[in-house]
Structure formats: C-alpha cells, structure tokens
C-alpha cells in the first residue's frame, strides 16, 4: 500500500446530516471537523451546504459526506431530499440556550419521519465553553438522549472540544453497522463487533456503499 492515498480513495462513503436550531453552531462544528477552522462571525447557512472528510476506522478509510443545513424553519421544504440516504445525524443544540434544547424533540421527529429508523443519531450540546451561561444541565440532556436511544456528547467548536470525538464516534458506529450487515450476509453472527450495534435497515443503502477502487495499491 502506497503512503499516499488520493482524496477520493475511500472504502466507505457515509452521508451525515447536521440539524438543529439556527445559531447553535452547526456550521462551526462542521468547519472545525472538516478544516479545523472556527469563525466567530460565520454567516448563516442558506439551504444546504456540504463538506467532506475521511477518517480511518480499523483499517478502512471512511469518507464522511456531511450535509449542513439552515436552522431556520423556512428552509424545511428541502428536507426529504436532504435526509435521503443519510445514515447518521448530529442533532445539535446550544447548551447556553434552553429553547434550542426544547426544540430537539421536533428535530428528532422530523429526522425519524424522513430517515430509516435505525439511523445513528447523536445529540450534541454545543458551546460547552460558555460555562457561565449554561442553561441546559448535562444530566438533563443525557437523560433525554438515553430515553430517545441516541448517543450524546457535549462539544465546543470554539475550543475544539469533543468535536473530533463526536464525528468519529458516529462514523465508527455506522461502520460497525455496515460491517455487521456484511457479516450477517456471511451468516457469521459470532463475529459481531462488541458494543452497541445498530442495524441500518434490511435493504441496501445508497449512501453506505462499499466503493470498489481500481487504484488502491
């Protein structure tokens, strides 16, 4: 295997969506993860914007194609196209604004209405650096995440706290699901990976495609 791998050389391509109220920091989470950048005065997202980044899980290259959407309700008609084929979602709220946490329920409903029921979801409490302004206690969000059976993490895009971990965790879980599917197909249940696994539907997913590369050597 050569040391250099081309940008489009990957084993898996996973589509993730970033959702949550306007101004919770979705775009900054994405730019922190994709480019290690943070901008205090980032512009509002219009419609939908994209970024990609590849990470290594086990010995595989997993490419995340992340869809960042506008938080304003106005841009909601696009949703069905937006959620199509998504295998993971980061549902973001702002730990310093309780109303954004209250709206998580609505986002979760929309997500579940439009995606496969086994999509990997992580509840993300962003802006954890604003400690003096905290309005959503960690325990409250954690309890909610447990109740709704989603993963949970508090992040700070500004301080680059847990951002990498959050995305990697979601991608790894999806990877496990996909490898389990491959194993299921091979009728070898004894080799199931340890930890929580989620089945992403029975039929083949468009976005969780195993890419056959011709130049991986």
């Amino acid at each position: 295997m050569a040391a250099y791998r081309a940008d489009d050389d990957y084993d898996y391509l996973f589509k993730l969506v970033l959702i949550g109220d306007s101004g919770v920091g979705k775009s900054n989470l994405l730019s922190r993860f994709a480019k290690n950048e943070f901008n205090l005065e980032s512009k509002s997202t219009i419609g939908v914007e994209f970024a990609t980044r590849s990470i290594r899980v086990d010995d595989k290259i997993v490419k995340a194609q992340i869809w960042d959407t506008a938080g304003q309700e106005r841009y909601r008609a696009i949703t069905s196209a937006y959620y199509r084929g998504a295998v993971g979602a980061l549902l973001v709220y702002d730990t310093s604004r309780h109303v954004t946490f209250e709206n998580v329920e609505r986002w979760l409903k929309e997500l579940r209405d439009h995606t496969d029921q086994n999509i990997v979801i992580m509840l993300v409490g962003n802006k954890a650096d604003l400690r003096h302004l905290r309005a959503v206690p960690t325990e409250e969000a954690k309890a909610y995440a447990e109740k709704e059976n989603t993963y949970f993490m508090e992040t700070s895009a500004l301080e680059a706290l847990n951002v990498e971990t959050a995305f990697t965790e979601v991608l790894t879980q999806i990877y496990h699901v996909v490898s389990r599917k491959a194993l299921d197909a091979g009728n070898d249940p004894s080799a199931l990976p340890k930890g929580q696994t989620i089945n992403v539907g029975s039929k083949d997913d468009v976005s969780a495609v195993k890419k056959t590369t011709c130049c991986s050597a």
């Binding site: 997202t45 219009i46 419609g47 939908v48 914007e49 994209f50 696009i78 196209a81 937006y82």
Partner: peptide
C-alpha cells in the same frame, strides 16, 4: 442543490 445558496 449545491448551487442553492449561490442562486438564493
């Protein structure tokens, strides 16, 4: 859709 913002 990748042109959404540019057009808007």
């Amino acid at each position: 859709f990748f042109l959404y913002r540019m057009v808007v």
